[in-house]
Nucleic acid binder design. Structure first.
Length: 958
RNA sequence: GCCCGGAUGGUGGAAUUGGUAGACACGACAGACUUAAAAUCUGUUGGCCCUAGGGCCGUGCGGGUUCAAGUCCCGCUCCGGGUACCA
């Protein structure tokens, strides 16, 4: 039965009293305020190097200070790392636990464009808000070490590292970065033949053609080098620098007015904002991260990160080994097509070539008869690529060029096609198609009715391609009868000997674009003298003020607007700024020596603090920050500026906290809302409703009407209970979904200690989990119960100095053991359970002895530092609980006189059997076999076998 | 498609090397207190059967190894995340 009710008839609201009665005996507000002030006053969390003391470096990924503030999901990782920082400190380590802000970035700039407000001002305001929210939670950060990537004192050193990258190249033979001055002296004496430095081939080719004409093939002699003018030398050197300027295809985002790095583009859309991204040729600063591809790959084996994130990096780097093969083209003696293949062993099965539609040679080789259709296909793919990427549904398309290549082993003619399944940006942008061995080639051959030469024994080529490396080859000359795995190295060797191929390693990893056409980022310490970029090192290049945060009318980036600034000693400045990941690639080093004005970080300090021992943050930075910071760390290591080449020895990625959204159901075209149960009887729209108006899924009707003007006149179709029941769903926590739980409110209602414990109690840190505020009461109750062990309701201490009972001792030492072991394996959630069990047992045992309660407060300190500090004081503990030595468990106190064994018969537990703890398995067996209950279970049968697992279980088989 | 996770009560989760599955909480139910409600406290709470004693079933599904399987092996299903014509 449904009732339509008016607002007046429903005065009793389900949510009217949300007040949580606060039991006065646990006055968390007073306790937390008191100790936060004391810690600040005494500088409890300031850190310095102490010779001979072992260090432990615990780091959070620093936040971008957005305007929205924190919700309960944000502090999760911070709480986890704080627990470990405090635990390690109590264990006697010198702990470095800093925090800062990744404060350059797009949102502040977008806001500036809209409002004219300087990004520095909004950033400052957001940081203040962040800081006040963080402070409420009682973190043990040493704030004297705070860094902000947008402060000139910090970005000066970001610029400095950029300058070093500009001044260095990469020597593949030495496997390390070396100064460009080393390079020039080699070039002066030997030229670049056999040089072995990482080089941008396209950049070198362009510069070489400019210097020596069209015949330039990539090598030059010492004489040729020495004959160049400085401008041409500069252009050639650019091809070797680790930070270099290049014309390249970049991801241009028109809506953001800037280029993006590959990891900032997701499925053809910008990661931030989801705007379309197009390919465009532009002159940009780049980072030669590809020079470090192998070391970035190998280094993964030396660090303790999750397998999944290592795998993401491995795939992103995408190393593949094979050969580069050269194919002659009929009627084009001067041209050849190079293809990269990981499977040269299947070369005999190759019967056509496929080029990317954008491949350079397409125009040259296309016959007149095919020209029209080739042009049409190229146009079609260029137009389609974007839309089609989003659709994800692609058929097999392609077009014949009319040209033929020559098979290097058989001399057969191979038609040359173009197709969009071959990507211009990978390998050489051309493939040799082996339809019998590659499914894409197979499908292409089927679609265009090309023959499929069979090269595998016993494989039916009509069923699809065979890519198994254990397959046996046939019709493959000398390789007949070999498995592919056996033939592969031979194929590479033989084709290389014949001069038709060279061994080749290919990476999917691209060099990273390092310029952004934005205002709110690090300016480059670069000006252009006669068009050649020069480092500015005599003074720091500061970010100038501008009159608007938009490009100039000529399309130059905003910095071109800074009239005095944009010219340095008469030379044009670089107008681009650095990307967001520049400052975050090395911030973990600056914390070690944050105020050093003579160096980015003193070597002695980085030697002391070393690698980050525990890094906590989200997994979403796998291909961005976490790769770039590894790259910069290796570079700084090569320059002998730091003593380690992996920044983060261990990393744990916290899972997302999801919100529980509530929904109301509006009958379409009306202002009438129907309760969840009856929603299907009407045509309804589902609308998010703010979760503060909902309790146990029941809507606060008055609150709802007051929430938004358009709902002021809403009426409701209630359920049989006379209530409005909301629907719900677990989804990402977000303001727009009205499912955000704010930590400030929870701290106000339950205290920071409760919130800290509860966030850890929710479940394993790495897992995504829904937030459920109801559960917090259980954790709050635990802290109150714990508090009651130490003092009564009036706050009078209950501590006594009598010796504890064996039960109390056992409870304490069991808890110490469990908490210690769980913290050592980073099992944050089970620690809270262990403490709860301990408190339950001590309450049961009526334990108020100092010998038990004082260590207990030390044990609590990492999770609930405020209350622990207060209770430590009640116990008369010396100094701060922050430095209380971590309690050790005493195995003797854990021993029980008896062990209760579950006794199984054929694997089913039938009864419990108590045996003396010190009894041997044989004695236990004898005793249990003598027990009446055993005889009853056996009913006269003789046991075949008796298994006694000491202190665990007894299983009687028979 | 490929690669990584994961699936345990009404819910979050525990079980660390194969050894009593469901710890610890939440919720629900019942009781105490209260004029009443909230709060608080106590008890019950995987399912099924049973007067009791107790029994049977049970960790996504189907097999297997073992004295013993949530845990190991083989074959699936579903869910989450990442990634993609990468030659």
């Amino acid at each position: 039965m449904n009732r339509v009710i008016t607002p007046q008839s429903h005065l009793r609201s389900a949510v009217s009293s949300r007040h949580i009665a606060r039991a006065m005996e646990y006055d968390f507000k007073a306790i937390e305020t008191k100790w936060r002030a004391k810690w600040a006053e005494q500088g409890t969390y300031l850190t310095e190097e102490v010779e001979g003391m072992s260090k432990f470096y615990v780091l959070d990924m620093f936040p971008y200070p957005s305007g929205a503030g924190l919700h309960v999901g944000h502090p999760l990782g911070y709480i986890a790392s704080d627990v470990i920082a405090r635990y390690k400190r109590q264990c006697g380590f010198n702990v470095l636990h800093p925090q800062g802000y990744d404060s350059f970035g797009l949102p502040a700039e977008q806001y500036a464009i809209q409002t004219g407000q300087h990004p520095a001002v909004t950033t400052e305001r957001n940081i203040e808000r962040y800081r006040s929210q963080l402070d409420l939670l009682g973190f043990s950060y040493d704030w004297s070490r705070e860094v902000r990537t947008s402060s000139p004192e910090y970005y000066r050193w970001t610029q400095w590292i950029f300058a070093r990258l500009f001044e260095h190249g990469y020597d593949n033979a030495a496997k390390k970065a070396r100064p460009i001055s080393d390079l020039t002296s080699t070039l002066e004496s030997k030229g670049n033949d056999g040089l072995g430095w990482a080089v941008g081939e396209d950049t070198l080719k362009d510069a070489g053609v400019e210097a020596w004409g069209d015949g330039f093939d990539g090598t030059f002699s010492a004489a040729q080098w020495n004959g160049l003018d400085p401008a041409k030398k500069g252009a050639v050197l650019m091809a070797y620098r680790l930070a270099y300027l290049a014309d390249s295809e970049v991801n241009w985002c028109p809506a953001l007015g800037t280029v993006l790095a590959n990891d900032e583009v997701v499925g053809g859309l910008s990661e931030r904002g989801g705007h379309p991204v197009v390919r465009k040729k532009m002159c940009q600063w780049m980072m030669r991260i590809t020079a470090y591809a192998d070391r970035l790959l190998e280094g993964l084996d030396t660090i303790d990160w999750s397998d999944s994130i290592k795998e993401v990096q491995r795939n992103w780097i995408g190393k593949s080994t094979g050969a580069q093969l050269r194919f002659a083209i009929q009627n084009h003696a001067d041209l050849q097509i190079e293809v990269f293949s990981t499977r040269p062993d299947t070369l005999y099965g190759a019967n056509f070539l496929v080029l990317a539609p954008e491949h350079d040679l397409v125009t040259d080789i296309t016959t007149e008869a095919q020209r029209k259709s080739i042009l049409a296909y190229q146009k079609e793919t260029a137009a389609r690529s974007e839309r089609e990427r989003m659709a994800g549904d692609r058929g097999v398309t392609g077009c014949f060029t009319g040209a033929h290549a020559v098979h290097p082993l058989t001399g057969d003619a191979m038609p040359i096609w173009i197709a969009d399944y071959v990507l211009a940006g990978y390998g050489t942008g051309a493939v040799m198609a082996v339809p019998a061995g590659d499914q894409r080639d197979w499908e292409f051959a089927k679609a265009f009715e090309l023959p499929i030469p069979a090269i595998f024994e016993g494989h039916d080529i009509d069923t699809g391609a065979q890519s198994n490396k254990q397959a046996v080859l046939c019709k493959s000359g000398k390789w007949n009868g070999m498995t592919c795995a056996e033939a592969l190295p031979k194929a590479i060797e033989e084709t290389s000997a014949k001069g038709i191929a060279s061994p080749r390693v290919n990476f999917r990893l691209r060099d990273a674009v390092f310029s952004r056409q934005r205002y709110w980022g690090e300016p480059f310490p670069i000006c252009y003298v006669d068009g050649i970029p020069q480092l500015i090192e005599d003074e720091q290049v500061l970010l100038p003020d501008v009159d608007a945060y938009l490009p100039t009318e000529d399309g130059d980036p905003p910095l071109a607007r800074a009239a005095q600034w944009n010219v340095h000693h008469g030379d044009r400045m670089e107008y681009n700024t650095m990307p967001g990941w520049a400052g975050s690639s090395w911030y973990f080093l600056r914390y070690m020596d944050p105020h050093n004005s003579g160096a980015f970080c003193d070597r002695a300090k980085s030697d002391y603090w070393g690698q980050v021992d525990l890094y906590v943050g989200g997994a979403e930075h796998a291909t961005g920050h976490l790769l770039y910071s590894r790259f910069w760390t290796k570079f700084l290591f090569d320059l002998n500026l730091i003593g380690f080449e992996e920044p983060f020895a261990k990393m744990i990625n916290q899972g997302m906290i999801l919100g529980r959204s509530s929904f109301v159901y509006r009958i379409e075209g009306t202002n009438r809302f129907v309760s969840f149960e009856q929603r299907k009887e009407h045509r309804t729209q589902r609308l998010h409703v703010d979760i503060s108006l909902v309790r146990n899924d029941i809507l606060d009707l008055e609150g709802f009407k007051a929430w938004r003007p358009e709902f002021a006149n809403a009426d409701f179709l209630l359920n049989e209970a006379g209530e409005y029941r909301c629907g719900n769903e677990v989804e990402k926590m977000s303001k727009s979904k009205f499912n955000v739980e704010n930590p400030d409110d929870l701290v106000d209602r339950y205290g920071a200690d409760t919130l800290r414990c509860y966030e850890m109690f929710l479940g394993p840190l790495e897992q995504a989990k829904p937030w459920d505020t109801q559960g917090i009461s259980g954790v709050h109750g635990f802290l109150r119960k714990l508090n009651r062990l130490y003092r009564n309701a009036d706050g009078h201490p209950l501590i006594v100095d009598t010796p504890p009972s064996p039960e109390a001792n056992r409870a304490l030492h069991k808890t110490i053991k469990k908490v210690t072991e769980d913290l050592d394996r980073f099992s944050w959630n089970t620690v809270v359970s262990a403490l709860m069990i301990g408190v339950n047992e001590l309450t049961e045992a009526n334990a108020h002895e100092r010998a038990v309660l004082q260590p207990l407060s030390a044990l609590l300190a990492p999770y609930a530092p405020h209350l622990a500090e207060d209770l430590w004081e009640v116990c008369g503990g010396e100094g701060s609980v922050v430095d209380a030595p971590w309690p050790k468990w005493d195995a003797e106190k854990l021993v029980e006189a008896e062990v209760t064994y579950p006794v199984q018969f054929n694997g089913k537990v039938r009864f419990q059997f108590a045996a003396p703890a010190e009894a041997t398995p044989n004695e236990v067996e004898t005793m249990v076999l003598a027990d009446d209950r055993t005889a009853k279970q056996l009913q006269g049968r003789t046991p075949k076998k008796v298994i006694v697992v000491p202190r665990r279980i007894i299983n009687i088989v028979g």
